[in-house]
């Protein structure tokens, strides 16, 4: 029996997560405030995969949803699950989708699933996003 409350995921255009070493290192340094970040041990930072939304066609579509409502995107919660460590200097296919919160029309959930070329699931992440609208006036 299907669950009427189960989220209805809407697919977004696929994206590519580029783990080129210079990009990963720059991201790690920015996380660390300019100091040595996780690049020192060769890891791809745990939150790096989320950057796939930025600049991707999918990210633009989500921003468009916000713009239509006169809202800004504000992160409320994130969840990452790591199955296999990502490697540097790879280009991973990422399937992206989203669903609206059935209880709150000012909330949506983004999901990304990073796979290896053979389809193995490496990492998945979700982000609960608030479509934040200023209801108090033009300024705080």
């Amino acid at each position: 029996m299907s669950d009427a409350r189960a989220p209805q995921w809407t697919a977004l255009p696929d994206a590519v997560l580029d783990t080129a070493a210079d990009r990963v290192d720059a991201f790690a340094r920015a996380l660390a405030g300019g100091g040595t970040g996780t690049e020192a041990n060769g890891n791809v930072p745990a939150t790096f995969a989320f950057t796939v939304f930025a600049g991707a066609e999918s990210g633009g579509l989500i921003e468009g949803i916000a713009r239509e409502r006169g809202a800004m995107l504000v992160h409320q919660a994130q969840a990452f699950t790591y199955h296999v460590p990502l490697e540097r200097n790879r280009r991973y296919p990422v399937a992206l989708d989203w669903h609206a919160n059935p209880d709150r029309d000012d909330r949506l959930v983004l999901r990304g699933r990073v796979r290896d070329d053979d389809g193995t699931l490496l990492q998945e992440f979700t982000a609960d996003i608030v479509l934040y609208v200023n209801r108090k006036g033009d300024t705080a």
């Binding site: 996380l31 996780t38 930072p45 939150t47 992160h75 994130q78 934040y132 200023n134 033009d138 705080a140």
Partner: peptide, 25 residues
């Protein structure tokens, strides 16, 4: 930021979250 009702610019949530990994490692 003020235009959407925030008191000013705010830090990226993912930057804050990233500090957890640094602490764990």
């Amino acid at each position: 930021a003020r235009g959407v009702g925030l008191p000013g610019t705010i830090v990226h949530g993912m930057l804050v979250m990233g500090q957890f990994e640094a602490m764990l490692r």
